[in-house]
Amino acid sequence: MKPFTYERATSPAEAAAAAARRPGAKFIAGGTNLLDLMKLQIETPAHLIDVNGLALDKLEPTPEGGLRIGALVRNTDLAADQRVRRDYGVLSRALLAGASGQLRNKATTAGNLLQRTRCPYFYDTNQPCNKRQPGSGCSALGGFSRQLAVVGHSEACIATNPSDMAVALRALDAVVETVKPDGTTRGIPIAEFHRLPGDTPHIETALEPGEFITAVTLPPPAGGRHVYRKVRDRASYAFALVSVAAVVQRDGTGRVALGGVAHRPWRVEAAEAEVPRGARAAMAAILANARPTHENAFKVTLAERALHAVLAEARG
């Protein structure tokens, strides 16, 4: 861990301004991902801005009938909230499928959105990684890729996004609210929030330098049956091989987002017309552009079969 300086933010706008003033600054909330990465010197922030004191830990209804989730709402609290359980069940289920009770008690909504990949080559500072060291190459390509992306990846990076929560938010059409260092605010649709790796896998989100997440807003409830199915090698405390977040209506139409397959939660709206025709047709469309490696080709079959189970559960 590199020595760093530290301050406590006094307001969201001030946090953003402070980050812009100090190149190499990072926000810290729960610290469940950042501190680990700092110990390994994968993250080497020169300055930490502690945002835990900001009053961003509330869940409140929006005028449109949706729900505004403060950036600092802990994963445990978000999963347990009555409104979330009733109206956005896929989100509650996704959260509870992730990490452990202890981690969810610390981890925040914004921090979860910003967690970094678990690609094992990213985690080993002796290995080339374009995410860690832009331009150094991707050692995962042609290496141990069983867990890695099957779609949307590039020659520069085949990492996946590890979040469960973000997959549910993608299915729910959430909007990420931010404040920039100049004090202006904006809402970033979740579809645009996480980027594909392209040539710049180290740039993972649409956030501008210093831009600070204040909340995540959910639109009014979409109804339907909410299912989150996470498939992994052990029963708990493991990242998804494939996960499926689905909101399925009585008429068989629905939205489907996948985790564990790409650099961001993977949803193809145009493919959702196929959902009423069943898992095979839907997944063929959702993963039409899949280019799996030899080691992770099973994820394509697995995604289809998992969706099959999800649709059966939604019908049942």
Partner: peptide
């Protein structure tokens, strides 16, 4: 997991080398 090009065990922590948890 052996990286046969680079010659090492890639999954060298307890997040990536999975052992049973209580739920298993």
């Amino acid at each position: 997991a052996v990286d046969t090009r680079r010659g090492f065990f890639v999954n060298h922590d307890l997040a990536a080398y999975e052992v049973p948890v209580h739920a298993d």
